[in-house]
Amino acid sequence: MSFAGVMGAAFNLNHPAHTVDWHFIHLSVANVVVIGLMFLVFLLAILLPFPGAAGRRAARRNGGAS
């Protein structure tokens, strides 16, 4: 168990979960975090500039002008 003890216990999640309760909805905090991250990552993926894309556009424009 020593390997797991060393490698696997930076944060101990082996305790009963906290929950988010809203009307009839009861979700574990861990699941809410995962679902929230999905939305966040999706938003970032469509909003953040993709490296190289603007550069390619600029190069193309210059190429077209020359």
């Binding site: 168990m1 020593s2 390997f3 797991a4 003890g5 060393v6 490698m7 696997g8 995962v34 991250l37 999905m38 990552v41 999706f42 993926a45």
Partner: peptide, 23 residues
Amino acid sequence: GVGHFFNSIHLWSVELFFFAMVV
């Protein structure tokens, strides 16, 4: 411990798999 380590990798890669699939 080594077994538990690979079990953890297995679990987290499954979470990442579903995460990436959903996005």
